[in-house]
Design a protein around this nucleic acid. Structure first.
Lengths: 203, 203
DNA sequence: GTCTATAGCCAGATAGAC
DNA sequence: GTCTATCTGGCTATAGAC
């Protein structure tokens, strides 16, 4: 059956491409390496995706479509603010332990190619901060949390959760621990980060 | 005078190379582009630095030697813990506003090449966390701050300060503001971040 | 759909004149 | 020290057989 064979090959290519692009980025990746990893030849890559650029975009969109729902959880979930921070922190860290290269990949490629954001905004379900803003401002009015700009709080939540993965090699060296101990630190952050945030804003 | 001319050219090359490498990374940078920016030809790049790799390493070490003293300020400064957090936050954000590409560059290249850390540890004055750890543990014993692992606190401080610059394109899109407003947010973080941290740990 | 072979280009590096 | 010209290798992409 041709159909099945096609789908398999295409999937194999995407799996291999993800791995290489996530590790080396657009500029550092080689089509040959992707072909080797997918156990096919270079010509097939072009047969299925036409160019390196298009293959890259497929991988990028796929990575972003995994990351976006994670961010949605802070921004558009209905739960109470403290619950939300707790859940997000725990879920997000589990998510990244499972897909370690995604956040760095997305952020890195957006840095070299900031116009890509526009494509994402129009073509994907791009998260919006509006609801989170209302929620934070309500909590401030109700005297549940100290005054803080919703944007700053959001940046803080994201920073505390994402950065330890992006900065891993640097942080590991600075904190002076091996990979195993660092992983234990990250595991602890599933609860430590939300405590840290809530301690800071709770009245 | 040959000597002076040499030093000028070498400096020009380094300035140009920094700009290109910081923006595009090792894999994305082109020797031709560096030569153009330095207003010389490719051959001279090789005359002074022998290879792209060596030129890159010169740029990388120079970037790290600017970043390291900033980190030293959290780790090895003699001031009181709260003062230290305040000063670091304010200084660090000013530093990055001045050298916007450095943290991302260092972190990114360490990610693609984690063994580089060893070179840095042996060849540069690499910051150590030991003193900071003692200071945090003392503050906990004295009842000045809530119990927290020094490593986690350190990671939090670095994350809150560095990430907003590394994740700028993504955060700008999520927070849904233009560059000008985002810069205002960053400027406010000079004081907001230390308040956020101190609120969280202070008893 | 999948392969081998190769076109065509571009990048890093060097030779050699000045 | 600085330049032009060129080598050499590697990379994306395509042609064409099966």
């Amino acid at each position: 059956m041709d159909k099945i064979k096609t789908e398999n090959t295409e999937t194999e290519i995407l799996i291999a491409a993800k791995e290489i692009f996530h590790q080396k980025g657009m500029a550092g990746a080689r089509m040959q390496e992707i072909a080797d990893k997918a156990q096919i030849n270079k010509a097939l890559l072009h047969y299925y995706f036409r160019s390196k650029q298009l293959l890259f975009e497929a991988v990028f969109k796929s990575a972003f479509s995994l990351l976006a729902p994670q961010l949605q959880k802070v921004l558009n979930d209905d739960s109470d603010l403290f619950e939300k921070i707790k859940n997000f922190t725990e879920n997000y860290i589990s998510f990244v332990i499972k897909h370690p290269y995604i956040p760095n990949f997305v952020i890195q490629e957006l840095n070299t190619n900031p116009e890509f954001v526009n494509k994402l905004k129009s073509e994907t379900n791009f998260p919006s901060i509006d609801k989170f803003k209302l929620q934070v401002n309500d909590a401030i009015k109700l005297g549940v949390i100290r005054p803080i700009e919703a944007e700053q709080l959001f940046i803080n939540i994201i920073a505390l959760n994402i950065f330890p993965f992006i900065g891993e090699p640097l942080l590991m060296a600075l904190v002076n621990v091996d990979k195993e101990s660092y992983d234990r630190l990250l595991e602890n952050r599933k609860t430590e980060v939300s405590k840290f945030i809530i301690n800071s804003i709770k009245i």
